[in-house]
Design a protein around this nucleic acid. Structure first.
Lengths: 225, 225
DNA sequence: CGACCATTTGATATGGATCAAGCGATGTGG
DNA sequence: CCACATCGCTTGATCCATATCAAATGGTCG
């Protein structure tokens, strides 16, 4: 456990692994404005620096946002599963790029149309804001991940994914080790080693590299610290 | 330099140090709704978990948002200078707490009133969204900071502060070393050592601990990598 | 079957954390 | 006005978690 500041304060609150924006009823009317588009595995949806003309909602598959740093490293901003909205980001242009991790179907919504609609319908405006606020919360949680130890990061990641793909205790990860590493700010080797260690600790099982069984969630939560 | 992924791609874009939301003309009408409140140095403005009833805009002084982790570490979410808006965050309750670093004057705006106004005035709604998007961009940039080396983090921090307190090359930092460390995900010792190293490299001067003169910005930018 | 790619595992190096001591500024009481 | 405590910061020595370099393993596709 890394030390940063040892404040012995009273306010202990767990970092809530907030998943990306999942708009169920939300954006209901809005979805009519969008066109569903297919993207093949590894296809680019938009690139860093592209004008942010559209918003996106995953219907099928998984999408990853990422950013290449000047030195060649890559930071993965997030993984987006069916129901999740992505492409919000900051302003005129996309700060990250987005790629389909697996074959995906994505609803593409024209931003200008959405804004125009929001101008006329306060409900839409409110939803737009709400979706953005939740994305903000997700990114803040991501920050909290990045200051933890490798074991904590991996454990938190597994718990997050398990929560988002509710299929009992078995999770089928759509992303590669490299994607996970770049999301968690670790190397692929460290991710792999940490998973092996968690297996030895009987916290998880690894039937195959993409499939992970959570055997002891409370142990994971504890490691999550 | 830490390795994460060595993608030799074409898209090289520098992490733009986006400062917190600074609403100049923005929130113009809105500000009439708010009451200016004084906060003494170290006074708490709101606490993690408090219902998020208000939005805030710094008029004078500096505010820091932070979060205590279960193990006693602290993460500083951001520093807010005059003109900056804070307290947006996620939804019903504040994920971070906010404290005045120096004696501050803060405009306090009731969220419900603002939302009501946004319902009637699309411009207000749009501004609210815009402010949130910019905060989102700031937090994403913060993530990019946290995966860099100590030297890069400190250099980036100095450049960011210099940009936000435009007073030539001399910056008077309102925050302590501990605050900086908790913002950058480093220890106070590492921050201090790194500043000393930057001084030896003649990138900066340290006339006093809170005052920093940028002697060679391009060198800092280069370190910033 | 063989080539290729993703993943795991091993050995070593290193950046930053930790532990500890020193230093300078500020403030307090005598 | 000066001794002395305190606090924030710096500097030094050492340790450790994770990166790096390297090789082995395993699964997939032609």
């Amino acid at each position: 456990m890394l030390r940063q500041t040892a404040y012995h304060a009273g306010a202990f609150k767990q970092a809530t692994n907030s998943p990306p924006v999942r708009s169920g009823e939300l954006l209901g009317a809005i979805e009519l404005m969008g066109a569903p588009m297919p993207f093949a595995r590894n296809a680019e949806i938009y690139e860093e620096g592209d004008p942010a003309e559209y918003l996106y909602k995953v219907i099928e598959g998984t999408v990853r946002t990422s950013k290449l740093l000047a030195d060649g490293r890559r930071q993965v901003g997030g993984f987006y599963l069916p129901g999740d909205v992505f492409g919000l980001e900051t302003g005129d242009e996309h700060a990250f790029s987005a790629e389909a991790i697996a074959d995906a179907k994505v609803l593409v919504i024209k931003r200008s149309a959405l804004i125009a609609l929001a101008d006329r319908d306060p409900d839409v405006a409110r939803q737009l804001w709400s979706v953005t606020c939740r994305e903000l919360g997700r990114v803040q949680d991501h920050i909290l991940l990045l200051i933890k130890s490798a074991q904590e990061r991996v454990a938190a990641f597994l718990l997050e994914m398990a929560e988002r793909v509710p299929a009992g205790n078995a999770v089928d990860l759509p992303m590669s080790r490299q994607d996970i590493a770049d999301y968690l700010g670790l190397t692929i080797e460290t991710v792999s080693r940490t998973l092996s260690r968690l297996e030895h600790l009987s916290a998880i099982e690894l039937p195959s590299s993409r499939r992970i069984v959570l055997r002891n969630r409370s142990a994971l939560s504890r490691l999550n610290a």
